[in-house]
Write a protein that binds this DNA or RNA. Structure first.
Lengths: 343, 343
DNA sequence: GCTATCGTCGTAAACGTTTACGGAATAGAA
DNA sequence: TTCTATTCCGTAAACGTTTACGACGATAGC
């Protein structure tokens, strides 16, 4: 069932068959029809290995996720994102493959392996740290890649990011409007650009709204349920607890809700809870429904793929070839978890 | 940096270099050392395309997930599973790639494409329906594959599944012990083997415990939050609502909790809620904490990979070569969502 | 000293595809 | 008719790797 057999079956040379299948112009319309029909009838499809060996391309883009990420953050986020990415690539015959990286393994080694063994034509990284050596490595080798979330330097590679600045502004705007003056923030490891940006924006917006910045109200915690639970416990133990808490990572909110529930307190009545994370399927079903931010993750994924395509020589012309770096806005979805007035 | 360049750099033939790298015995120890050192120094890694073209193998196993699945069920489940699968395969130099299938596309076509283009050496399917043509296709072509969840016929391919029978027994045992006599069940589409099995086990166990089977208490719903919400709403509207509800799909529980909360009712006090799903990170943080079942998903993933490896000619000898089909037991994790006595 | 064996390595053929190149047939122009 | 341009197609090389085969020298057995 190789191209040779198909050619022999048609009494045509393999060169012509290949040209017919790949849509080259220098082939008779009648011949092309015959070839296509025979290929469909015999279930022929070109072998990936042979093709990629010849033309040095694999038609595969790899998405790197660490299991650390998937165990501590919202997996749905990446599923939706991946769906968008994949659909966009599919339009160009590219497949998306997801590599799950175990936490112990060096992420740089994994990237090196993919590049050196030519396991993918391009790469998408989902989390970048401030001192991430993978970016330098990839840029140095001229390997096409894009990232979800910008890195510290901004960099000269394509990326998509979310507008945490305006989200934080909207969040604090809203909370201040309700009369809150002690607004807390629970972030993850500020080694990640994301959490660092959040902290900066938080400080800036507090000041902008004439509120005091109390460093004790900024807690760093794990971004899952347990972390949120602990953070909330710490807040409640304070002499003067915050009246509102912002959780950028929604899974931490679940822990915070549990903590409050155990203390006989109710989110949205005793403490305002607001999440700067993507609106999840769970959010409207929490008790009370969680105020958070909405974003079109599927569309974001597609756009991220477009940005990467634009940086790949093969596809650049179809996409203008310019460097694409975009910051996507959020849409605040007000619900009941923070909808009350202080005093 | 191909093998040719590496060979030229060492003044050795490429044949010897290849043998040295692949651990063939007929190469001098000293030469092998030189080759390995040079390869590491020059950052050489064999090209995947060339290798797989020659030996007809890709060292890639594909896992097929539908986005339908990921949007309606627990994504964490598959992340954990995938992690185990990947780790097991990694020990043999195999990579796991995850294919996200859009709901519109025919899953069979996707499978055909992967097989015909030789995009993977083996396949793992995560959801099989009763009339699933993919199984016949793969079996007919002799393509190695395994499934998570058994299909109707059982089949002669390797699979892992969960012991829903014993889970249902434990669940109804527990609820009956608390005095419940009207126990409801909310499943997904019984076209899936899983949901069908659940319904069967449910009927059987009710009868086994001397409880009446009321078909009105068996509701089919979407397996996400919205579905659970609707199902619970229907129950509450009944003349004689159930005193306990079993939700095999945990995301539906979130919806049910919300429904109860809005009705001023509390799970674990007014209605017993029990989930036959895997224990999730959220479960202990719900209010009240959810009773469900625990399972070692990572280990299950590893074992599923082992089962597949055992069916692949290349690896069969290392795994005994026998057909592996296993049903894994659950461990009941009793929490507060159902911990009350009726009357 | 001749042959057989062994350890080591080089040579070259394959794997399935794409594509540069050239050739044959046809059509159009003179 | 002859020359040229065009259309279509066949031939063969190339991609990077693995491996069957043979060759070479050294060692051992006789």
């Amino acid at each position: 069932m190789g191209i040779k057999e198909l050619a022999r079956h048609l009494n045509i040379s393999i060169g012509t068959v290949s040209r017919a299948l790949n849509g080259h112009p220098e082939v008779n319309a009648e011949t092309r029809k015959r070839v296509l029909e025979a290929a469909a009838a015999l279930g022929y499809a070109p072998d990936q290995a042979g093709r990629s060996l010849r033309q040095g391309t694999l038609n595969v883009v790899a998405l790197l996720l660490s299991t650390d990420l998937t165990s501590k953050t919202d997996t749905m986020f990446f599923m939706e994102l991946s769906r968008g990415i994949q659909d966009q690539f599919a339009e160009h015959g590219l497949d998306l493959v997801i590599h799950l990286n175990k936490p112990g393994l060096n992420m740089l080694d994994r990237v090196k392996r993919i590049v050196e063994r030519r396991q993918a034509d391009a790469l998408i990284l989902a989390e970048t740290r401030d001192d991430d050596p993978r970016l330098d490595y990839l840029a140095g080798r001229g390997f096409p890649f894009a990232t979800m979330g910008r890195s510290w330097s901004g960099g000269s590679h394509p990326w998509m990011d979310l507008d945490f600045d305006s989200a934080m502004r909207a969040a604090i705007d809203r909370l201040a409007g309700f009369g809150h003056r002690r607004v807390a923030l629970v972030t993850g490891d500020p080694g990640y650009r994301l959490d660092s940006m959040l902290q900066d924006a938080y400080r800036r917006e507090l000041i902008g709204h004439g509120l005091a910045v109390d460093e004790a109200l900024m807690i760093k915690a794990d971004t899952h349920e347990e972390g949120g639970y602990k953070a909330m416990t710490d807040f409640l133990a304070m002499a003067e607890p915050p009246t509102a808490v912002i959780f950028p990572h929604y899974r931490a909110v679940v822990g915070a809700y549990a903590c409050l529930s155990e203390a006989g307190l109710q989110p949205g009545r005793d403490v305002a809870i607001l999440s700067c994370s993507a609106d999840t399927a769970i959010a409207p079903f929490m008790a009370p429904p969680l105020t958070c931010f909405r974003i079109d993750l599927y569309g974001l994924g597609r756009r991220l793929a477009e940005a990467l395509l634009a940086s790949m020589p093969r596809f650049a012309e179809g996409y203008g070839g310019a460097l694409v770096q975009e910051i996507w806005p959020w849409e605040l979805v007000g619900r009941d978890s923070d909808g009350f007035h202080v005093r």
